[in-house]
Structures are given as structure tokens and as C-alpha cells.
């Protein structure tokens, strides 16, 4: 291993099934089904996936869903707004823990 992240891993992701084929099969079937048109369209799901990719900071998912969202007809300004939504939720999630800090501090302080 020369680095922790390798772009080839994305193309070879399916080989993760090798040592647990039944689980791998279930995962990829479920993954595929989750991304199909349903109550939400596959286009909408692509944007959600892009946002989550940033929230979980997965470089593989970011590459895959940037390409997927462009291919589904969104432009880079729309994709940037998705990233801001993900970042806002991440930032807000950190900040709201400040309430916990305040409650603890207020409880201890004079």
C-alpha cells in the first residue's frame, strides 16, 4: 500500500464481495435499489448522495456522485449549493453541541 486512498479502489469496489459473497451481493443489490427511482427520483437521490459524500468526507463517493450529478443534468453551481447544505448541517451539528458545553459550563460556573 502506497497511500490510504487509491482511485482504483472505486472501479474495483465490487471485489470487496470476495471474502463475504452473500453479504456483498446483498449490499450491492440494496445499494442499487436504494438509488433507483422511487418516491424520490434517481436525480434527486444523486444530489442527496453528493451531499452525504461530503458530510462523510468520502473521496470515492465525491468523485462518483459529482460525475453522476453532472451526467444527470445539474451544473456546478447547483452542486456547490449541495456541498453548502451538507457543510451547513455538519457545521450546525458541531455548533449545536455548544449548547451541551454551555449547559455543563453554566452548571459548574457561578
Amino acid at each position: 500500500m502506497t497511500s490510504y486512498y487509491n482511485p482504483d479502489h472505486l472501479a474495483n469496489f465490487h471485489s470487496i464481495s470476495e471474502h463475504a459473497p452473500d453479504l456483498g451481493k446483498k449490499f450491492f443489490e440494496w445499494y442499487g435499489a436504494a438509488m433507483e427511482d422511487g418516491a424520490l427520483s434517481a436525480r434527486e437521490k444523486s444530489l442527496i448522495a453528493l451531499g452525504v459524500s461530503h458530510a462523510v468526507q468520502c473521496p470515492y463517493c465525491i468523485e462518483a456522485y459529482t460525475k453522476d450529478a453532472l451526467k444527470k443534468g445539474y451544473d456546478v453551481e447547483q452542486l456547490t449549493e449541495v456541498v453548502h447544505v451538507a457543510s451547513a448541517i455538519k457545521g450546525g451539528a458541531a455548533l449545536i453541541h455548544g449548547m451541551q458545553m454551555r449547559e455543563t459550563a453554566d452548571g459548574l460556573g457561578m
Binding site: 427520483s41 434517481a42 436525480r43 460525475k67 453532472l70 451526467k71 444527470k72 443534468g73
Partner: peptide
């Protein structure tokens, strides 16, 4: 850019 177009019916 350098990618395939969106599905006509989907957009």
C-alpha cells in the same frame, strides 16, 4: 463537459 447527457425522459 466530457460526460454523457442526462436521460431525456428523466429531465
Amino acid at each position: 463537459g466530457a460526460f454523457l447527457p442526462a436521460g431525456q425522459a428523466t429531465i
